[in-house]
Write a protein that binds this DNA or RNA. Structure first.
Lengths: 140, 140
DNA sequence: GGCATTTACTTGGCCGTGCAAGCAATTGCC
DNA sequence: GGCAATTGCTTGCACGGCCAAGTAAATGCC
């Protein structure tokens, strides 16, 4: 039997791919791509932020965030402003169009969560959350 | 509080990223990139295959596999041969260099699995596998 | 003050991945 | 046989991500 196929690692890879695909599908109508919604959520929750804060919060590479923000600006969801107090820094703020996405994206995110966990009992969900947290700690 | 951060969806995204990063690190010395090892494993297990079979097995888009195979060929790990019986089809076969990676990659994959599951009891591991399978079914 | 170091971001390059469009060979069917 | 539909693959394009190298501003320290 194909030992490699039954590993948890492989399961993680497959789940990650399907999950991303589902996210992409649910976000399509909003105009966001999977990944961008997390950035926007941080802006909605915490207001305008320097990119450095987003990088920290999202745990992504600086270059990844730079380009994500560039694309969000291109799409009109975000504005980039040079900080007055630190002229290296860029402050990212949601535009009106960006703010307008909030409810729709929250809804899509909720649907994604529902889809992901469909059929799992409450204890199963808690267990999954616990185990994923352990795995995350292992890999970080 | 930031409700979105505590979702299982978000945990999946974070785990997937760390997991991929770990895979990339463990595979680095072999010359493979995360993702390519799964393709090679299928070749090692099942011998030369038409791309269509790899696409099916890996559950990836045809274009993704085309390019992965192109890069593996570029790296010298794989050879592409036009099928005699169906001249549309491309048969992918591991080269000697590709075969030579087998043990090293198996080892790396095992290390990845160990790292991922470190500290989890046997029942925890079984439970995680079960829950991931459920989630995967939900998302497919 | 002045220079080395650190910080904040950019850009180029590369990989995985998907969609859309397109080409060529094969198959299905009248 | 002959033409339509299907199959197998490729290419262009766009995203998320990462690393490495580079620029410019702010900080640290003598």
């Amino acid at each position: 039997m194909h030992a490699d196929i039954d590993t948890t690692s492989h399961a993680i890879v497959r789940v990650a791919r399907s999950h991303r695909a589902a996210a992409e599908r649910l976000l399509r109508s909003s105009g966001l791509h999977a990944g961008q919604e997390l950035l926007m959520m941080h802006l909605w929750d915490n207001g305008p932020q320097p990119q450095s804060a987003l990088i920290e919060l999202l745990g992504l590479d600086a270059s990844t965030v730079t380009r994500a923000v560039q694309r969000l600006e291109q799409s009109g969801f975000v504005r980039r402003v040079r900080s007055e107090t630190d002229r290296r820094a860029v402050i990212v703020q949601p535009t009106a169009a960006g703010q307008a996405l909030r409810d729709q994206v929250s809804q899509a995110w909720k649907e994604l969560e529902d889809l992901t966990l469909a059929g799992l009992t409450e204890p199963d969900r808690a267990e999954l959350a616990r185990l994923l947290a352990l795995v995350e700690r292992n890999l970080t």
